[in-house]
Write a protein that binds this DNA or RNA. Sequence first.
DNA 1: TATGAATGAGCATTCATTCAT
DNA 2: CATGAATGAATGCTCATTCAT
Lengths: 197, 197, 197, 197
Amino acid sequence: MPGQREKQKQETRSRLVSAGAEVFAARGLEGTRISDIAREAGVAMGTLYTHFPDKEALFEEVMRAGKETIIAGIEATYALDVDHETRDRLAMEGVVGFAETHGALFRLLLSRGGGDDPLRREVVDAIATLRVKEFEDGRHSGRIRSGLDYEAAARCEVGAVFHLLDWWLDDPSRMDRQDLIRALSDFRRFGVEGSGA
Amino acid sequence: MPGQREKQKQETRSRLVSAGAEVFAARGLEGTRISDIAREAGVAMGTLYTHFPDKEALFEEVMRAGKETIIAGIEATYALDVDHETRDRLAMEGVVGFAETHGALFRLLLSRGGGDDPLRREVVDAIATLRVKEFEDGRHSGRIRSGLDYEAAARCEVGAVFHLLDWWLDDPSRMDRQDLIRALSDFRRFGVEGSGA
Amino acid sequence: MPGQREKQKQETRSRLVSAGAEVFAARGLEGTRISDIAREAGVAMGTLYTHFPDKEALFEEVMRAGKETIIAGIEATYALDVDHETRDRLAMEGVVGFAETHGALFRLLLSRGGGDDPLRREVVDAIATLRVKEFEDGRHSGRIRSGLDYEAAARCEVGAVFHLLDWWLDDPSRMDRQDLIRALSDFRRFGVEGSGA
Amino acid sequence: MPGQREKQKQETRSRLVSAGAEVFAARGLEGTRISDIAREAGVAMGTLYTHFPDKEALFEEVMRAGKETIIAGIEATYALDVDHETRDRLAMEGVVGFAETHGALFRLLLSRGGGDDPLRREVVDAIATLRVKEFEDGRHSGRIRSGLDYEAAARCEVGAVFHLLDWWLDDPSRMDRQDLIRALSDFRRFGVEGSGA
DNA sequence: TATGAATGAGCATTCATTCAT
DNA sequence: CATGAATGAATGCTCATTCAT
């Protein structure tokens, strides 16, 4: 079997990405020490450099993989043949599930650093793009209120979801999971004043 | 009489805080070098240590001062004797104005870093607290839809505002200032589906 | 019968020595990476260690082989049954030929590093020894001027040849090959002032 | 006195250059550890970086300063109003004196590394240029034998001097200092065969 | 024997902080 | 009080060498 060697290598690489996600999420890019990642991954420091040219490159891979996972989850929900309400609820549950499972990584992916790091934007941009498409698809269904600026609304939605989950993750006992999803969904749909159409 | 000496000292301290806001906002806590702040403030590195015990303390002061400014602006608006709609619009205009003027600092104050930095939460918490109070005050006016979870809604509001402005600041030509404020206000009030009461 | 296996092994070893000569000559002992030599030789890094105990040992072999080649060339010329003048010219042509063909290796063999690396001396010492013998052989022929310190003169000769060729190799268009050999030969024999006996 | 601070700084810088000359000469650029230089100079490692951007820059300064010293010594001799023979002897004594005092540095300045380091050439080039000028100045005095290629002869001279001194420095008891200078001078003037004009 | 992923000691460099001036 | 040269612990990264496949 010629693949044994290669399989081991991929396994090591994968361990590094997981460990990187863990530690970068907890301490940020600058706050993370290469040695922490290596220890977490159970490999020697030098091993990181046989898989990635430098710390930054591993960070990028962590962000890329995280983005892929979160976007894939949303897209999978969008592909289901169910009514809009169900679909939105399922998408929301998917996002909440990801946040529950990956806590710190979820925050890392959706947050912004101090500067102009484009990586921190990519996930937000990608989700916003998906949402804009949804709005456009639903344009004539009457669900969407008239006068809505899709691009702006998408950003608002993402911000609302991220900040609510960020708060909730600090102490999940604050709200029941189902109440959380309902609050999120209702805010997104009706704001604080609006009544259903 | 505070001597000329004392006035000079306060002037220097103030320059350090401004420079710190500038540089921390642009590069984050870890990404910022003491020497950068000193250069920006036009003083020697050592001078920083005659005003603050360490880098962290200056960062805290920058965050504290920023929080104070932004909260004071909102509270000032709340103190006005105008109708709710006007008040909300004025508060929003105040926040947009702050974001326009302080761009990077606005992001620094409202964003989250990777880890669990409590400083980055304080502003969000403070604004959320103000909003919850507003909701409670307006409980019987009928403006607020029934079933709204105030705490959750406050987080959603803050998230929506921050993310929309974060996006807008990247390229303010994206939307006219007035359209931005209206979009923000409408999303906050009606979400994407709701119609006014 | 040396098996096919053994032949392959010698072939690999030889490729390593050639590659080592190339890379050590270009970048020096410390500046050379094992991986560079392996790549140049077209083998894996580990292979080097089945032929040599470490990097230093390969370096020694490169130096040893280079010394052998250059000394053998000079000795071959000395063995010819021709008059002294012809012999000296042929020896010089041999050295120039080696320098032309092996450029960087020639410099590596004849130069000195910063420290006290004895390897870098061996070639110079060996040639100097040959030259001293020549002087002694020719003692009574009258060719050699009286009062010459053989040992010192041999060092001067070697230095003159090496430095001139080092300069010439940088840009061989500087001098015609024949003029170079004549200049070298004349300097060695007559210095800058002396006239022929 | 405003200069006290500055004087201290220059003193430190000067100590670093001296220590660098010592250690680089003994172990070469790659073989030298920053910590060795710092220890030799009696300062902390970081101090080196307040004076030079990196190790390479200190190396360059060492080479530059060494070149300046050695060239200045030769030029000073050339400025004397004495006959050629005296002058040449004095120049030679100056070079021997430098080699005696600075042993390892002398070798570092005049030697070549493995690769194409232009720094190692500068001193040789500079001395060669000086010698060519001397040959040209003395063109009509009849001292110089006809047919001499000045550029080539200059390189030969430098090589002869450097290699002889390199050998002598290994064990100065090999030759008496005066005999050394005479041997050097004679070889340079008459080669191994030539008789004085 | 050949391979190349893994190792980890070693090193150059950074930067928050100190303190003599 | 202000200065900025000096400090040295901390850290990212390199690369000769090993060893399981």
